[in-house]
C-alpha cells in the first residue's frame, strides 16, 4: 500500500521535472519575451514600492505602520504573489481551457486533472517576481529592525506556504466559475488589483465591515496582514504572535480544499467543445 503510494509520488515528481525542463525550453524560444518579463515584473514592484514610500512621506504612518514595517509587509506579499504566479497562474486562464475544450487532453491521461492543469504549464517566469520581492523583503527587515530567530524563520516559511495556497485557492475558485458560465472571464488583472491593495497595506485601515469580509469570507487578510503584524508585534492582532503564521497555513489548506471541491464540481459539468 505504502510502496504503491511512493511509486505514484515518484511518478508525479518525474513528470514535474520533465514539465519544468519543457517550460525552461519554451522560455528561451522567444528571447525578446524573456527580456521583457525580466524588465516588466521588477518595474512593477519597484514602482509599487516607490509609491508606498511616497504615500508614507505625504501622509505619515498608516495605522501605526511605519515605512520599514510596510516594506516588510510589501516584500512578503510580493514573495507569496510570485510563488502563486509560478504554481497557480493558470487559474486565471481556466476559462479559455473550458471554452476551447482543452480539458479533454487532461481527462484522458492517467494523472490528476488539477495537477496536470497547473503543472503542464508551470510558469517559471514567476521567478522574475520573486527576485524583487526578496530584495524588498530584505530591505524591510533592515529598516524595521526585525530580529531573526529560528522560530521566526520557520514562521515566515510556513506563512509563505499558507499565503501561496490562499492566493492559489482564490484563483482556482474564480477560474472554476467558467465551468458554469461557459465564458472565458479573465479575472487576473482585477484580482491582482484588489489583492494588491489588501495585502500590501495593512487592512486595519479599512472599515470594520470590510475587515470582517477580508478575515472570514475572502481570507485575504491572512495572506500578509495578520501573520506580519504577529511577527512585528503591531496593533491588536499582535497577541497572536508567531502563531498567526501557522493560522495562515491552516486557512490556506482550508481555502485549497474548498477550491478543490469546487473545481471537481465544475469539472463534473464539463462538456467538451466538440474537438
Amino acid at each position: 500500500m505504502f510502496g504503491k503510494f511512493l511509486k505514484e509520488l515518484w511518478h508525479y515528481i518525474d513528470v514535474t521535472i520533465c514539465n519544468i525542463k519543457m517550460a525552461l525550453m519554451m522560455i528561451i524560444e522567444y528571447p525578446a519575451n524573456l527580456a521583457g518579463w525580466m524588465i516588466s515584473n521588477p518595474i512593477q514592484f519597484i514602482l509599487g514600492f516607490a509609491t508606498i514610500k511616497f504615500v508614507v512621506e505625504q501622509f505619515g504612518e498608516i495605522n501605526g505602520w511605519n515605512y520599514g514595517q510596510l516594506a516588510f509587509l510589501y516584500g512578503l506579499s510580493v514573495i507569496s504573489h510570485a510563488l502563486s504566479m509560478i504554481f497557480f497562474v493558470q487559474g486565471w486562464f481556466m476559462g479559455w481551457f473550458v471554452i476551447e475544450g482543452d480539458f479533454d487532453r487532461y481527462l484522458t491521461r492517467p494523472l490528476g486533472v488539477m495537477y496536470q492543469f497547473f503543472f503542464t504549464n508551470i510558469n517559471i517566469f514567476g521567478i522574475t517576481d520573486l527576485i524583487p520581492g526578496i530584495c524588498v523583503f530584505i530591505y524591510g527587515c533592515v529598516k524595521s529592525g526585525f530580529e531573526w530567530s529560528i522560530l521566526k524563520a520557520i514562521a515566515i516559511i510556513v506563512m509563505l506556504i499558507g499565503a501561496t495556497l490562499i492566493r492559489g485557492g482564490i484563483y482556482i475558485m474564480l477560474g472554476t466559475t467558467s465551468f458554469f458560465t461557459k465564458s472565458p472571464m479573465d479575472f487576473g488583472q482585477y484580482t491582482q488589483e484588489i489583492v494588491d491593495k489588501t495585502t500590501m497595506y495593512p487592512i486595519s485601515m479599512y472599515p470594520e465591515s470590510m475587515q470582517f469580509v477580508l478575515t472570514y469570507l475572502i481570507p485575504i487578510g491572512w495572506v500578509s496582514f495578520y501573520p506580519v503584524s504577529g511577527l512585528l508585534g503591531i496593533g491588536d492582532s499582535s497577541y497572536f504572535g508567531t502563531s498567526a503564521a501557522f493560522m495562515t497555513l491552516l486557512v490556506g489548506l482550508i481555502v485549497m480544499l474548498v477550491a478543490g471541491a469546487f473545481f471537481r464540481l465544475g469539472l463534473k459539468g464539463y462538456e467538451s467543445a466538440g474537438n
Binding site: 519575451n33 521583457g36 518579463w37 524588465i39 516588466s40 515584473n41 518595474i43
Partner: peptide, 8 residues
C-alpha cells in the same frame, strides 16, 4: 511574441 512587452 510580445506578451512581456505588452506587460511592460
Amino acid at each position: 511574441n510580445v506578451d512581456a512587452l505588452i506587460q511592460v
